[in-house]
Each structure stands twice: as C-alpha cells, then as structure tokens.
C-alpha cells in the first residue's frame, strides 16, 4: 500500500502560484468571451427592437440599458478591489495583488462611462448635462479615487511593495465611500429616488426589465473577461520584469 505523500492543496493555495493560475484559468477565457458576446447581442436586440418606449421618458429610456450596468460596475469593481486588498494584506495572496492592479483601470473606465451615459441621459430628461446631485457627484468622486489609485500604481517602481501600500489606500477608500455618499446626499437632496431595487419590488414593467438585466449581465461578464485577461498579462509582465532584472544582474557580475 502506498501512501500518498504529496501535500493536499486547496484550490486556494494552488491558484496562489502565478503560473498555475494562468494555466488553470486560461481555458475559461474563450467561454467567457463567447458568453459576453452572446449576452451583448441578445441585450442589444432587446434594447432596440423588442422593448417599448417608456410612457414618460420616451425612447431615452434606452440609454438606461447602458447607463445602469456601468453604474453598477463602477461600484462592483471597487468591491472586487477591496476584497483583493484584503487578500493582499491578510493572506499575502500573490494573485490578489495582480487582481487589484488589473481591476483599477477597468473600474475607472466603467465609472467614466457611467458618468458619460448619465450626462447624455440627463440632457433630454432633466434638461441639463450635469447636475450637482447626490448620485452623479458621488460617482465623480469615485472616479477621482480610481484615478488616484491608477496614478499610485504608476508611481511605484517596485510592484510587490506597491501592492501592500495601495491595498491600505484601497481599504481606506472603501471605508470612506459610504461616508462620501452620505455627505453628498446630505449636501444635495435633488434627485429621483432609486427605482429599480425598492423595498416594495421593482416598479418597472417587465418589458424594460428584461433588456436591463441582460445588459447588466453582459457588462458584468465583459468586466470578468477583461479582468481575467489583464491578470494574465500582469503575471507575464512580472515575469518579464524579473527576467530583465536577473539579466541586468548577470551582465553586471
């Protein structure tokens, strides 16, 4: 009888090896890409051909199908970064660093898109591109935080050391975002109340909810796909940097 002496590894520690992580998650990329594309095709078809114009907002309701998913992603990506920051600080998980770095520019982009579509939605419905109201203002502040984090990543030479420092800042930001949201809401009370998720259930008709949910998942999967791809690139970039450093040392010796 042979005794299995190989240490039992959980998936958690197995994906901690960057090369293993890339090898394990590479087969996921194509299915994710196809799923995203299919969701976008269905969502766009619903959004343009199979949903009625809203009786109040008219056809401008169609902007909602790109605005709401981006607004959701602007917060979801920060959530991903916060969880990754905890992974970096608490478990020193190497993939958490990579995930944090890959997510930051994506989050900034989705937040910018949320603001852009929000402005284009606001012009016909409220008559102004920009209103200093609670939700738009706190999204703008969130964009500033994202851009600060991206700038911080670019400022550091040593990416391993940068990860822990940026994780601290990401967590400080995560604690602050609800406070910022609260203060901005207090500061300005002019806005329509949230109407998708209300305590008494959604008030929108199903014909509008269907494209909204399909687009919502399409954008979420778009983020997941891009995030995974960017993480693979980041792993490779670190290997490039390591090799370059070793070659430089070899040349010097």
């Amino acid at each position: 009888m042979s005794i299995d002496t190989t240490p039992k590894q959980s998936w958690w520690s197995r994906i901690a090896h960057p090369g293993q992580f890339v090898a394990w998650t590479s087969p996921l990329l194509w299915p994710l890409t196809i799923l995203t594309a299919v969701l976008f095709i269905i969502g766009l078809w619903f959004a343009f051909f199979n949903s009625p114009a809203d009786y109040q907002m008219g056809d401008t309701v169609r902007i909602m199908y790109v605005h709401v998913p981006n607004a959701w992603l602007s917060q979801f990506v920060y959530g991903v970064m916060t969880v990754s920051a905890l992974g970096t600080l608490v478990w020193r998980h190497p993939m958490a660093d990579v995930s944090m770095k890959a997510a930051a520019p994506l989050g900034a982009m989705f937040t910018a898109l949320a603001l852009f579509t929000g402005a284009l939605w606001g012009r016909p419905t409220w008559g102004t591109f920009w209103e200093w109201d609670g939700r738009m203002t706190s999204t703008l502040v969130l964009l500033f935080i994202y851009l600060g984090i991206v700038a911080l990543w670019r400022a550091f030479d040593d990416q391993l050391r940068a990860a822990r420092i940026i994780a601290v800042f990401t967590l400080v930001g995560a604690i602050n975002i609800p406070i910022i949201k609260f203060s901005v809401d207090w500061w300005s009370t002019l806005h329509q109340p949230a109407s998708v998720f209300r305590a008494d259930g959604p008030t929108m008709p199903g014909s509008i909810l269907t494209p909204l949910f399909v687009m919502f998942f399409a954008f979420t999967f778009l983020f997941l796909t891009l995030h995974l791809k960017a993480m693979h690139t980041e792993v490779k970039r670190r290997r490039v940097m390591g090799l370059q450093r070793r070659m430089a040392q070899g040349d010097a010796a």
Partner: peptide, 10 residues
C-alpha cells in the same frame, strides 16, 4: 423619437 442624437451618442 426626438432625442435620437443622445441615444445614438450614448
């Protein structure tokens, strides 16, 4: 509708 420009640009 009348706001096609905004929708298309978005």
């Amino acid at each position: 509708g009348p706001h096609a420009v905004f929708i298309v640009w978005a």
